[in-house]
Simulated scan of single mutants.
Amino acid sequence: MGMMSEFKEFAMRGNVIDLAVGVVIGAAFGKIVTVLVEDVIMPPIGLLIGGVDFSSIAITLKAATVDAAGEVVPAVQIGIGNFINALITFVIIAFAIFMVVKAINRMSRKPEAAPAEPSEEILLLREIRNSLQR
């Protein structure tokens, strides 16, 4: 079997295509949640804690300077606010995926079958046991 035909067989399996669709939808969903967190959720939270914009929270390791040529050397900062936004985004995405998986599991769960009636042999053995106990 040639490499191209092997690759075609691999790529056309249902699981691979499902995975590709899931990745594309997941990326789009991630962008939606990122916008939701940054533009809808974080501004009210920042307002509640005193007008803080989380994306601007940073620890400055080295302040911006101007070198001898007159060019501005940007500051070196650790963007803690961006990390907080990413963390909240992750929690929201994880919760949403959890809810979707939970709903899918609930829909795909097979109803529990009623226990089957015992066979005639079992019923006969029970009668024998009961009569011996008397």
Results as ranks from 00 to 15, higher is better:
3 M>A: 14
3 M>E: 11
4 M>V: 13
6 E>N: 12
6 E>G: 04
6 E>F: 04
8 K>T: 02
8 K>L: 08
10 F>D: 03
10 F>N: 06
12 M>K: 09
13 R>T: 15
13 R>H: 07
13 R>S: 14
14 G>D: 13
14 G>C: 04
14 G>F: 09
15 N>R: 12
16 V>Q: 03
16 V>Y: 10
19 L>R: 08
20 A>T: 08
20 A>E: 05
20 A>G: 11
20 A>P: 03
23 V>I: 15
24 V>C: 08
24 V>G: 09
26 G>Q: 10
31 K>M: 08
32 I>V: 14
32 I>M: 12
32 I>Q: 07
33 V>M: 08
35 V>L: 10
37 V>F: 01
37 V>E: 00
38 E>K: 13
39 D>R: 12
40 V>H: 03
42 M>A: 02
43 P>I: 04
43 P>Y: 00
47 L>F: 07
47 L>M: 12
47 L>P: 01
48 L>K: 08
48 L>H: 05
51 G>S: 07
51 G>K: 10
53 D>P: 01
53 D>E: 13
54 F>R: 00
54 F>Y: 05
57 I>Q: 07
57 I>N: 01
58 A>V: 01
59 I>H: 01
60 T>N: 06
60 T>Y: 02
60 T>V: 15
61 L>H: 02
63 A>P: 01
63 A>M: 03
67 D>A: 09
67 D>L: 08
68 A>D: 15
68 A>L: 12
70 G>S: 07
70 G>H: 08
71 E>S: 10
71 E>R: 11
72 V>I: 13
73 V>R: 01
75 A>D: 04
75 A>W: 00
76 V>C: 01
76 V>S: 06
76 V>R: 01
77 Q>T: 15
79 G>S: 07
80 I>L: 15
83 F>A: 13
84 I>K: 01
86 A>Y: 07
86 A>W: 09
88 I>V: 15
93 I>W: 00
94 A>H: 10
94 A>M: 09
94 A>N: 13
94 A>R: 10
96 A>F: 11
97 I>H: 02
97 I>Y: 10
97 I>F: 12
98 F>A: 03
98 F>R: 13
101 V>D: 05
102 K>F: 13
102 K>R: 15
104 I>M: 13
104 I>V: 14
105 N>H: 03
105 N>A: 04
106 R>T: 07
108 S>F: 11
109 R>H: 04
110 K>W: 03
111 P>Y: 06
111 P>E: 13
112 E>R: 13
113 A>C: 05
113 A>Q: 15
114 A>D: 00
115 P>G: 05
115 P>Y: 04
116 A>M: 09
118 P>F: 08
119 S>C: 06
119 S>E: 04
119 S>T: 15
120 E>N: 10
122 I>S: 04
123 L>A: 06
124 L>K: 14
125 L>P: 00
126 R>I: 13
126 R>K: 14
127 E>H: 02
128 I>L: 12
129 R>C: 05
131 S>V: 10
131 S>I: 11
132 L>F: 13
133 Q>C: 04
134 R>E: 12
